[in-house]
Amino acid sequence: MAVSSFSLGCIPATLPNKLTVMPLLGIFAASSSISSPSYHINDSSIQIPSAQENCFERRPLLMGIGALALSILPSSSLLAQEVLENYSAFVDKIDGYSYYYPSDWREFDFRAHDSAFKDRYLQLQNVRVSFIPTEKTDIHDLGPMEEVISNLARNIYAAPNQRATIYSMQERTIDGKNYYTFEYQLTSPNFARTAFATIAIANRRYYTLIVGANERRWKRVRNKLKVVADSFRVLDL
């Protein structure tokens, strides 16, 4: 999927290491279902060329920034086969990761997480990213995918009064880096929440992205949130 580029004479020479670009148009198409438990694709990491660092503050400052984002992101980073509107990009070149989120969501502070965005009306519909140090170099070092994901959902993500159900899991390889993405539900006596989680290891860090919603809204927003989960990339520091 090619993206035409153009020049803007007013663009400064550099862009910041942490960058929010909104809105981005035509980045991804939502997949209606997970076709298989594992697959491999090749794609380039989402990176901003170093010659254009510090063009914007973290909040967008210019009209037409969506068109600018399309011009500076390499076409190989666009994973969609079709066009889906209304997504924005968060790129953290300091901590080495990037992802897309719905452009009408708002940034907020989520305890112990490095970045987070939520629906402006439904706070439980959100995405957040965290990371911890690790001596491992790849998620394969954690063990078999099924064992790793089962342990995460049932022993790490679930509270003592919650039951974890794993619906699907998949492995992806993008630009030489491996990712596990899985769909799971946490159910307590009075509440249920469903989410996608994507994990990866790079830069001596264990990264986790979780995007989810109240179970009552899950069928309505599942495909939308799957785009977010699949967009997560770790960047070389």
Rank of each mutant, 00 (worst) to 15 (best):
L61F: 07
P37A: 09
L70C: 00
Y99S: 07
E147H: 06
S75R: 09
A116F: 10
F108Y: 15
Q123L: 14
N42C: 06
I149A: 03
Y87S: 04
S103V: 03
I72N: 02
F90P: 05
V148H: 02
K118R: 15
P37C: 09
Y39D: 14
I48R: 03
A80K: 12
K136H: 10
S71M: 00
E147S: 11
A112D: 12
R59Y: 13
K93P: 06
S36T: 13
Q47D: 13
N126Y: 11
V127L: 06
R111C: 06
Y39E: 14
K118V: 11
A116N: 12
A112Y: 06
V91M: 00
L79G: 08
S88T: 07
L142R: 00
D119W: 11
D114S: 14
C55G: 02
D138Y: 09
L122Y: 14
L122K: 12
S103F: 05
I139V: 07
S44L: 07
S77W: 04
S45R: 11
I46T: 08
A89R: 01
E53I: 04
L142Q: 03
R58P: 07
Q123T: 10
S88H: 10
E146L: 07
S71V: 00
G66R: 00
G96N: 06
R106E: 15
Y87K: 07
E107S: 13
T134G: 01
S88G: 13
I149Y: 04
R111S: 14
V129E: 05
E85N: 15
A69E: 02
A112F: 06
S35T: 13
E82W: 11
E135G: 11
D114Y: 05
S38H: 15
I41H: 09
P60R: 05
L124T: 14
D119I: 01
E82G: 09
M63W: 03
E135D: 12
G66I: 00
I94R: 10
S88M: 02
D92Y: 10
A89D: 00
R59L: 12
I34W: 14
N126W: 09
E57H: 09
F131D: 01
L73W: 04
D138G: 02
I41V: 05
S98T: 05
A80C: 08
F56R: 04
I94D: 13
I46R: 03
E107W: 11
Q125H: 13
